Every structure is written in C-alpha cells, then in structure tokens.
Computed example of a mutant assay.
Amino acid sequence: MGETPEGALVRELAEELSIEVDPVDCMVGAFASDPDQRIEHRSPYVVLLYTCRRWRGEIVPCDGQAVRWIARDALDSLSMPPLDVPLAAWLKKGG
C-alpha cells in the first residue's frame, strides 16, 4: 500500500535481480489487461511492461531462478502466460 508502480518495480528489481534502478529510467512501454474480468470471483488486473536501459550492479537472479538474454525474434519460441503474449509482440516490434 502507498507504493507507486515505479517504486514497486525498483524494489522488485533490487529484490529479484540484485540491481539498482532509478525510477526515472523506467518507462512504461506496453500493458495487457485480463480479458476475462467478468468472472465474479476475480479482480481485474493489468500487467505493465516497463523498459529500463540503465541500472547499477550485475544482474544476479535470486531464489534459484535463472536469467538469460534472448533475441526479439526468439520470443515466439518461449512458453508464456496469456497476458505476456501481447507484451512480447510489442517487444518484437522494437519496443
């Protein structure tokens, strides 16, 4: 509560990837919303895709996770949740 989306992003990047990011370097690039918001027991939600081209530190995944860099044209080869599909399409277009 009381945290901006950018503040949450900065905090999560520090917690999950051990990097420091200045909120001014985070730009919303695209978003996807839950297409099935009519279901009564579910709250609607939106996924924001941020671009960040500057950070401090070396990316170190936490909690036994893995990180890899891939080419934009390889995004289609990844399995992903439904809300990530339009975000990947945006990235492929040069986002």
Results as ranks from 00 to 15, higher is better:
3 E>V: 11
6 E>R: 14
7 G>Q: 13
8 A>L: 07
9 L>C: 11
9 L>M: 10
10 V>T: 06
12 E>Q: 09
14 A>P: 00
14 A>R: 13
15 E>A: 10
16 E>A: 07
16 E>R: 09
17 L>A: 06
18 S>D: 12
18 S>L: 05
19 I>G: 08
21 V>K: 00
22 D>V: 03
22 D>K: 03
23 P>A: 09
23 P>R: 07
23 P>D: 01
24 V>Q: 02
25 D>H: 06
27 M>H: 10
28 V>G: 01
28 V>N: 01
30 A>T: 01
30 A>L: 00
30 A>C: 01
31 F>N: 05
32 A>M: 02
32 A>E: 04
32 A>Q: 02
33 S>N: 04
33 S>V: 11
33 S>Q: 07
36 D>Q: 03
38 R>K: 06
38 R>D: 10
40 E>N: 12
40 E>A: 14
41 H>V: 04
41 H>W: 07
42 R>G: 03
43 S>N: 00
44 P>V: 02
44 P>G: 08
44 P>H: 03
44 P>F: 01
45 Y>Q: 00
46 V>E: 11
47 V>S: 11
47 V>D: 12
47 V>T: 14
48 L>Y: 12
49 L>Y: 11
50 Y>F: 14
50 Y>N: 08
50 Y>Q: 06
50 Y>H: 07
51 T>F: 02
51 T>D: 04
51 T>S: 07
52 C>L: 10
52 C>Q: 05
52 C>N: 06
54 R>I: 11
54 R>A: 14
55 W>T: 05
55 W>I: 06
57 G>W: 08
59 I>K: 11
60 V>I: 11
61 P>R: 09
63 D>P: 00
63 D>Q: 12
64 G>W: 02
67 V>Y: 14
67 V>T: 15
68 R>F: 09
69 W>D: 04
69 W>K: 05
70 I>A: 10
71 A>D: 13
72 R>P: 11
73 D>E: 14
74 A>T: 06
74 A>C: 09
75 L>K: 09
79 S>F: 14
81 P>A: 14
81 P>V: 13
82 P>E: 13
82 P>A: 15
83 L>I: 05
84 D>Y: 07
84 D>C: 10
85 V>T: 13
86 P>C: 08
88 A>F: 06
89 A>C: 09
90 W>M: 10
90 W>D: 12
90 W>F: 15
92 K>W: 03
93 K>A: 15
93 K>S: 12
94 G>M: 05
94 G>Y: 05
